[in-house]
Amino acid sequence: MRALVIDDSRAMRRIVTAILEGLGYEVRGAGHGREGLDVLDEGWIPELVCVDWNMPVMDGLQFVSAVRSNPSWRSITLMMVTSESEHTQIVRALAAGAHEYVIKPFTADAIRDKLALLGLLPQEVAL
């Protein structure tokens, strides 16, 4: 399974990437939403995108809206991973088309639990 991790912090990309690779994902990274869209435009379509909210160039909410407006990317599951923890912001993200919302700081178990709920744990891990 493939995952795209979009976060302007390289440190956070490394952390999320390590968690997902530990679960068996093939992972690519991007530093902001525009870079993330470039990866999708290349034709590298992941099952999962983990996207931060506050980023330069294109933020996570704009990215989610852009992905949702393209029918050929409908199969992608979008999970926001962000320090934006106000209830109104969570509602906005879900309304824009995010499937799940993980608040930083998080643990590897929290990510795993969310993926299990979404049915996105690679089979050998889920067993």
Partner: peptide, 15 residues
Amino acid sequence: DAFGEIANVVGGNVK
């Protein structure tokens, strides 16, 4: 990058 991200997480939760 790393120190800024820690500030971001603490700041987001303070907010």
